[in-house]
C-alpha cells in the first residue's frame, strides 16, 4: 500500500513512530548527560503527542488522561529530577567517552531489523500501522537496553530504563489504544516511585564510591 493512500491519523502515527525510533538512536550516541536527558524529554513529548492524537482520533477520554500523565511524568518531572541530580553532582561538564560508537550504532540498527523480524507473525493478520508501531516500540525497548550496556554512567542507565518504559507505553497506545485505566495508573505509579528511588540511589552510590561510574561497582564477584 502506498503511504499517501493511508488516512491522516495513520500517517501521523507512523511519522511519530519513526521520530521516536530516531530519538532512541540519538540517545545511544550521546555522551553528554544533559543532552541525553533533553533527548529523553523529547522522546516523552513525541509519545505524549502520539497519545493525544490517538485520543482525539478515537475520541477516547481515558487516552487524554494517559497523554496528560505522560506529559507530566516523562516530559517534565523525570527529566527535571535527573537534570537536578546531574547539576548537583557537577557532572554537566563531563563527556563520557563512548567506546566503539560505530559498532554500537550498527548494533542498534540490527536490533531494529531484528524487532521487525520477531514481530512478523503478529503482523501477518493486521495492518501496516501495527507492523511499524509494534516493531518500533520493541526496538525502543531493545535500544534502551543497548544504551544501558554501552554507557557507564548510572544516570545514563536510568535514562535507558525510562526509555524502555516509553517503548512499552507506545506499544500499548498504538496497538490496543491503551491498557485499562487501572493498569495504566498502576504503571505510572510504579514509574514515579522508581524515579524517586533512583534519585536516592544516586546519592548512596556517589557517597559510597565517590562517582556514578558503574564500572566502579565491582565488589561483588563470583570469582575472587
Amino acid at each position: 500500500m502506498e503511504i499517501l493512500q493511508l488516512d491522516f491519523y495513520t500517517q501521523a502515527i507512523l511519522s511519530l513512530a519513526a521520530l521516536i525510533g530516531l530519538t532512541s538512536f540519538l540517545m545511544l550516541g550521546q555522551g553528554r548527560l544533559l543532552r541525553l536527558v533533553f533527548v529523553f524529554a523529547l522522546q516523552g513529548l513525541l509519545l505524549a503527542s502520539a497519545t493525544g492524537l490517538a485520543a482525539y482520533t478515537l475520541d477516547n477520554e481515558h487516552l487524554y488522561i494517559s497523554a496528560a500523565l505522560t506529559l507530566a511524568l516523562k516530559v517534565f518531572f523525570i527529566p527535571w529530577l535527573i537534570r537536578r541530580h546531574v547539576l548537583r553532582m557537577n557532572m554537566h561538564r563531563d563527556v563520557e567517552a563512548l567506546n566503539n560508537k560505530t559498532i554500537v550504532m550498527l548494533g542498534g540498527a540490527s536490533l531494529m531489523i531484528f524487532s521487525y523480524y520477531v514481530l512478523l507473525p503478529v503482523i501477518s493478520n493486521t495492518t501496516t500501522l501495527m507492523l511499524n508501531a509494534l516493531a518500533v516500540s520493541l526496538s525502543v525497548v531493545l535500544l534502551g537496553m543497548l544504551l544501558m550496556i554501552s554507557h557507564r554512567q548510572a544516570i545514563a542507565h536510568v535514562v535507558g530504563f525510562m526509555s524502555i518504559e516509553n517503548g512499552l507505553f507506545f506499544a500499548a497506545i498504538v496497538s490496543t489504544s491503551g491498557m485499562p485505566m487501572v493498569v495504566e495508573l498502576g504503571i505510572a505509579f510504579d514509574v514515579l516511585v522508581a524515579a524517586v528511588l533512583f534519585g536516592i540511589f544516586f546519592m548512596h552510590i556517589s557517597k559510597s564510591i565517590d562517582t556514578l561510574d558503574v564500572d566502579m561497582l565491582n565488589r561483588l564477584n563470583e570469582v575472587d
Binding site: A154, H157, I205, S208, I209, L217, N218, L220
Partner: peptide, 14 residues
Amino acid sequence: RTPESIEAAWKYFI
C-alpha cells in the same frame, strides 16, 4: 548502606 549492599541493590533494581 555498605558499598557492597548498595551495589547489590543497584544490580537488583536495574
